[in-house]
Each structure stands twice: as structure tokens, then as C-alpha cells.
């Protein structure tokens, strides 16, 4: 109940504030972004991952993901050789991996979260629910007709692959449209583009996300095929036992 109330309040605030959007501070914008991303209570989605290398060779994977708060599980459906491989993310940076060929669940080191997930150009963390305000200090660079352009600097204590981000945020719904990732030498290393942004039920969602690693010239597309929100996922789904199913 509390969370629903919070969401309603946030929605009301969003609507009332958007009229006076120009006066928002960078930090306020970032807060709104986070609340839009984290608005659903839980979600369940199915997606296709398309990995494209330098030569244009494509690899396809299919995954399901369920998420509830900080708990998250990703399971591979295809290709056949990876079917059943699953990750479980629990609060406190506990990450478990299930390899079906060995029928064993193993805890894996948490620093995996800052690395590329399963050959994609997304980090393990990118796929989860981010909380930008906790991790970055924002500066509002520019406000255009459509977007707020923010520069996010990683907070000192945060361990990140990239030290600076530049994001384009839609002014109408606070959904991120584009992000650029810079390394500590200020070189652009990765871009992510959110496409086909639409509203499903009460929530905004991108139908396709494309990441481009500029160093390796490698791309990943995530194409959403199914998404459900607030279905009341049970906690039992986020256990080692269920990971194997």
C-alpha cells in the first residue's frame, strides 16, 4: 500500500512539476529519472538479445527477467547450448549463477556487476534497476525543446567502468533517450539509445535498447517481446532453488 501511495504521489508531482520544468535543478531531474525507472513494483519481461560484432556477425539470445525491488533473476531460454543458465541477484550484492550442465548453483564475485553481461555491451548492472541519484552527481548542461541534457559524474566512492555520463532525458516523461559513457581520459567509449519508448499500463518502457561499444565496435540490441508489471511476484521465485527450474 505504501509503495502504491508513493507512486501516486510521484506521479502527481511529476505532472505538476512538468509545467515548470525549466526551473528544475539537475538533482531534481535525476530524482525524477530514478522514480520513473523504479516506478513498477515488480516486472517480468522476455527479450531478445542481438549481439553484433565488428564484422557484422550476429548472435541471438533469448532471456526472461523477473525483478522485484533489488531482487532480480535472468534466465536464458536460447540458444540451446545456453538454455537454463541463470543469474540471481539478491540485496547486498550477492550474485548467484546456475549452470544447468553441472546442476550447481555457485555464488560469483560481485565485481562482475561492473563488467559486460554475457558478451553484451551492457553491464550486469545496466540490466538492473539503477538508482542514478545514489551513484552520480548531476550537472544540467542544456535544456532543449525536447530534452534535458545532463552530465553525470560518478561519485567518488563508486566503482564504475565509466567515470562520466552524458544523458538526454525526455522533458515530457523523464525517460532517458540516449546516454554517452566516457572513460577517465574523457574518451567516448559507449553509447546507449532507448528506442520505441511507449507507455504500457502506468509505466513508460522502451521497446528496444541499443548499446554500441566504440572501442571494440560491438553492438547489442535488446528487443522487448513481452513485459508485465505489478503481477505480484513471490519472493520464493528469487531463490537458488527456483533458479534451477
Amino acid at each position: 500500500m505504501k509503495k502504491t501511495a508513493a507512486i501516486i504521489i510521484i506521479l502527481i508531482l511529476t505532472i505538476s512539476f512538468s509545467a515548470a520544468a525549466e526551473e528544475l535543478t539537475a538533482r531534481e531531474i535525476l530524482g525524477k529519472i530514478d522514480s520513473v525507472i523504479n516506478a513498477p513494483k515488480d516486472r517480468e519481461l522476455k527479450a531478445k538479445l542481438i549481439l553484433i560484432d565488428r564484422q557484422g556477425n550476429k548472435k541471438e539470445r533469448e532471456i526472461v527477467m523477473i525483478q522485484k525491488g533489488e531482487k532480480r533473476m535472468i534466465k536464458f531460454l536460447s540458444p540451446a547450448s545456453q538454455r537454463g543458465i541463470a543469474f540471481l541477484n539478491l540485496p547486498g550484492n550477492r550474485i548467484y549463477l546456475y549452470l544447468p550442465a553441472f546442476r550447481r548453483v555457485r555464488r560469483i564475485a560481485s565485481d562482475i556487476k561492473n563488467r559486460k553481461f554475457a558478451g553484451t555491451d551492457f553491464t550486469y548492472e545496466d540490466l538492473g534497476n539503477l538508482n542514478y541519484a545514489d551513484e552520480y552527481d548531476p550537472v544540467l548542461e542544456e535544456t532543449t525543446g525536447e530534452y534535458f541534457v545532463l552530465e553525470l559524474k560518478k561519485k567518488e566512492e563508486q566503482k564504475k567502468e565509466y567515470s562520466r555520463l552524458k544523458i538526454w532525458v525526455r522533458r515530457d516523461n523523464f525517460y532517458i533517450k540516449r546516454a554517452e559513457y566516457y572513460d577517465k581520459n574523457n574518451r567516448l567509449r559507449k553509447t546507449v539509445e532507448w528506442k520505441r519508448i511507449k507507455k504500457i499500463g502506468n509505466y513508460w518502457v522502451a521497446g528496444e535498447i541499443e548499446a554500441h561499444d566504440l572501442k571494440n565496435d560491438h553492438r547489442t540490441k535488446i528487443i522487448l517481446s513481452e513485459v508485465k508489471f505489478d503481477t505480484g511476484l513471490k519472493d520464493a521465485l528469487f531463490t537458488a532453488r527456483y533458479l534451477k527450474r
Partner: peptide, 14 residues
């Protein structure tokens, strides 16, 4: 097994 190999290789993807 092939699956065993594939599962381990998954850890090195990318």
C-alpha cells in the same frame, strides 16, 4: 559433455 563445455564457455562470453 557439449553442454558442460558450452556452460563454461558462457562464463567467458565477450
Amino acid at each position: 559433455t557439449r553442454d558442460g563445455v558450452a556452460n563454461l564457455l558462457f562464463l567467458m562470453e565477450g
